[in-house]
Computed example of a mutant assay.
Amino acid sequence: MQKILRSFVLSVMLASMVSGSMAADIVAGKSRAGQCAACHGPDGHAVIPQTPNLAGQDEDYLAEQLKAFRSGERQNETMSVIAKPLNDTEIANLAAYFHSLK
């Protein structure tokens, strides 16, 4: 039992070190967010009715939604076109940036 517990603790520690070393870049996200501002506002607060505010949203949720638009799993004429060329790093950076806003 102790062996299993040690393995579990080691796995959690390793996973945390790996995810920490791959932290998203908020500055890069901000520089990539220019196109987003037209609808979602320069500060993440929507300027167009029916467009969601992105400021302060959960980072994982934002990344998940952008990936769903990119893959076609989620459909929206505008967002599908915008998300299509984004790679995973750009998505993570954008999600971190909008999450950081108040």
Rank of each mutant, 00 (worst) to 15 (best):
Q75P: 02
A38Q: 01
A46K: 09
N87C: 08
S7M: 10
I48P: 09
P52V: 11
L62H: 03
L54Y: 10
R32A: 15
L54G: 11
S31R: 12
Q65E: 13
N93H: 07
M1P: 13
N87M: 10
K3V: 07
K67L: 14
G72R: 05
A46Q: 10
S80R: 05
H40M: 13
M79E: 14
I82Q: 10
N76I: 09
S80V: 03
D60Y: 08
T89C: 05
L66N: 07
N87P: 06
R74H: 06
H40V: 07
P85Y: 01
S21Q: 00
A46P: 15
A23T: 00
D60T: 08
V12F: 07
L5S: 06
T51Y: 08
A15P: 01
F8C: 05
G56K: 07
A38R: 00
A15F: 10
S7G: 14
M22Q: 04
L5N: 06
I4E: 11
P52E: 10
A46I: 10
R6V: 15
G34A: 13
A28Y: 10
Q75Y: 13
G72N: 11
A92D: 04
Q50I: 08
E59K: 05
V18N: 03
C36A: 01
S31N: 13
M17S: 05
E77F: 09
T89K: 15
F69T: 00
K102M: 02
A33V: 06
K30Q: 15
G56W: 02
A23P: 00
Q57K: 12
A24T: 00
A55H: 09
F98Q: 04
I82E: 03
I48V: 15
G20V: 00
P49I: 09
P49S: 05
G56Q: 07
S11N: 01
L86P: 15
T89F: 02
H40K: 09
D43G: 10
P52M: 12
Q50S: 09
S21H: 04
K3C: 03
A33E: 04
Y97Q: 11
S31W: 05
A95V: 10
I48E: 11
V27R: 10
L86R: 11
H45C: 02
T89P: 04
I4Q: 14
M1E: 15
A37Y: 06
E64Q: 15
D58E: 01
M13Q: 03
A37C: 00
L54D: 10
L101S: 08
Q57T: 12
A33Q: 09
L5E: 09
D88P: 15
L62F: 04
T78L: 13
A15M: 11
Q57D: 04
N76A: 14
D25V: 03
G44L: 08
A63Y: 04
M22F: 05
C39D: 05
A23R: 08
P49N: 01
S11G: 12
Q35V: 14
V12W: 03
S100I: 00
N87L: 11
L62P: 06
Q50K: 05
A63F: 02
E77L: 12
L66W: 03
M79F: 12
V47W: 14
I91P: 01
A33P: 08
I26S: 01
H99D: 07
F69R: 00
V18T: 02
A68Q: 14
F98I: 03
